[in-house]
Design a protein around this nucleic acid. Structure first.
Lengths: 217, 217
DNA sequence: TAGTTAACGCACTAACTAGTTACTTCTTTA
DNA sequence: TAAAGAAGTAACTAGTTAGTGCGTTAACTA
C-alpha cells in the first residue's frame, strides 16, 4: 500500500505525494487540451499550471500523447459513470427518456471540456480511444440502458416499435452536442446569443420535443 | 484587368499566374487545416503541397491565420451557395424539407473538411468568422428558406405551428454533423462501422424521420 | 539508522516553425 | 524597347517545443 499509516482520510500532509501530483497534472492537462486541442496544447504550460515539474509529466504519463489518452479516458469514464447513476430503470419509459435527454444536455453544458476533447480525438481519428478496452465496456451499458427503456415503452404501448437504440442514442447526443460545440460560430450564423439563459431553456425544451416525437407511436 | 487578352477561356499557359497560385495555396491549405486543425497545420507543408513558395502565402494571405480565415470563409460560402441552388421554393413543404435534410447530410458526407474546419473555428471561439460580414448575409438566406417552408407547411395543414426555424435549422445540421464528425470515436463507442454503406443509408433515413416527426401536426 | 526506492528539479538539446530579407525573373505597358 | 511592377525563390532568424540526462532530497523499510 502507499503509506496508509500516515494518511488520515481527508488529509495528506506529505510534501511528496505522487497521487496528488498526478491529479494536478491531469486537471491542468484537461483544461489545456480542451482549450487548445492536442496539437495546440503546450506541455510547459500544463506543467506550470499543475505546479509540477515538466519532468513529472514524462515520469507519470510517458509522453504528451500518453497524457492526452489518460485525460480522454477519464473524461469518458466520468460521463459513463454519471449516466449509470441516473437509475433510469426506476422510472417509467417516458420519464426515463426525458431524464436522459436532460442529463446529456446538462452534462455537456457543465463540462464543455468533454466536447472539445472528443472533437480533438476525432481529428486524430480516435487513435487514442482505440487502445482503451474499458471505454467499450462502459459504453455498452449506455446502449443497453436505452434499449431497455425503448423495450419497456413499446410493451407499455407508449413507444413505437423498430426504433434502433444506437441511432436514438446518437441523436440524443447530437441535438445537444452540436448546439454546444458550435455555439461560437452558431451565435454568428444565427445572429442570436445561443448561450443566453432563455436560449438554453428553449433549446432543451426543443430537444426533448424532438426525441419524444421520434419515439412516440 | 489581369491580362485578359492572352487568356483563352479554358487555358492558362502563363508560367506566372497569381490566380492559379492563390487557388493552389487555398486548396492545399483547406486540406492541411482540416486534417490537422489550425494549430496543427504547418505553413511549410501547405506551401509544399501547393507547389508554391512559402513566401507567396505571406504575400497573398498575410499570415497563417489570414489564410485560415480565407479558407473558412470560402467553405461557408460554398455550402450556403449550394443550399440556394436547391430551389426548395418550387417543392411542396414536405418534399422541400426532406430535400434539405438529405442535401445537408450529403454535403457533409462529400465535404468532411467542412466539419473539421468548423470545429477548428469553434475551438478558437469563432474569432475569424466574426470578422466576416458576407457569412452573416448568406446565412440569413438559409434561415429564411426554412422559415418559408415551415410557413407554407402550416398553411397547408401539414406542419404544426410554432416551430422555431432557427432551432429546426440547428437540428437538421446537428443530426448529420454529429454522426459524421464523431464517426471515429462513434465507431468505437457503438462497436459498429458507422461509415459502412448500409449504416449511412440507415442514418439518413433515421434523420429524415426525426425531422419529419418534429414538424408534423 | 543505514540503505533503498520513489518523487522531484535544473538545465539542456535537437528539431521545428512562423515569418522575413534580399534577391532574381517574368509580364505588361508607356 | 525600356521601365516598372508583379510573381517567384532561397536562405535565414529568432523564438518555440517535446523530450532528457543527471543530480538531489524525501519517505519508506530492513
Amino acid at each position: 500500500m502507499t503509506g496508509e499509516q500516515t494518511e488520515k482520510p481527508g488529509r495528506k500532509p506529505r510534501i511528496r505525494d505522487a497521487e496528488a501530483t498526478k491529479a494536478r497534472i491531469l486537471d491542468a492537462a484537461k483544461k489545456e487540451f480542451s482549450k487548445n486541442g492536442l496539437g495546440g496544447a503546450r506541455v510547459d504550460d500544463i506543467a506550470e499550471k499543475a505546479k509540477a515539474n515538466k519532468r513529472m509529466i514524462y515520469h507519470y504519463f510517458e509522453s504528451k500523447e500518453g497524457l492526452f489518452q489518460t485525460v480522454l479516458e477519464e473524461a469518458y469514464l466520468d460521463i459513463r459513470s454519471a449516466e449509470q447513476k441516473l437509475h433510469l430503470e426506476d422510472l417509467d419509459p417516458k420519464a426515463a427518456l426525458e431524464k436522459l435527454v436532460r442529463f446529456t444536455w446538462e452534462y455537456y453544458l457543465k463540462n464543455p471540456e468533454f466536447l472539445t476533447l472528443v472533437n480533438s480525438e476525432n481529428l486524430h481519428r480516435a487513435k487514442h480511444l482505440k487502445k482503451s478496452e474499458i471505454i467499450k465496456v462502459s459504453s455498452r451499458k449506455l446502449v443497453n440502458m436505452v434499449s431497455s427503456i425503448l423495450e419497456r415503452g413499446v410493451k407499455a404501448g407508449m413507444f413505437r416499435d423498430g426504433v434502433d437504440p444506437v441511432q436514438l442514442n446518437i441523436t440524443i447526443a447530437a441535438v445537444g452536442y452540436y448546439y454546444l460545440t458550435n455555439r461560437f460560430t452558431g451565435t454568428i450564423i444565427y445572429e442570436r446569443d445561443l448561450m443566453a439563459k432563455d436560449a438554453l431553456e428553449q433549446r432543451i425544451r426543443f430537444n426533448i420535443e424532438t426525441i419524444m416525437r421520434l419515439v412516440t407511436v
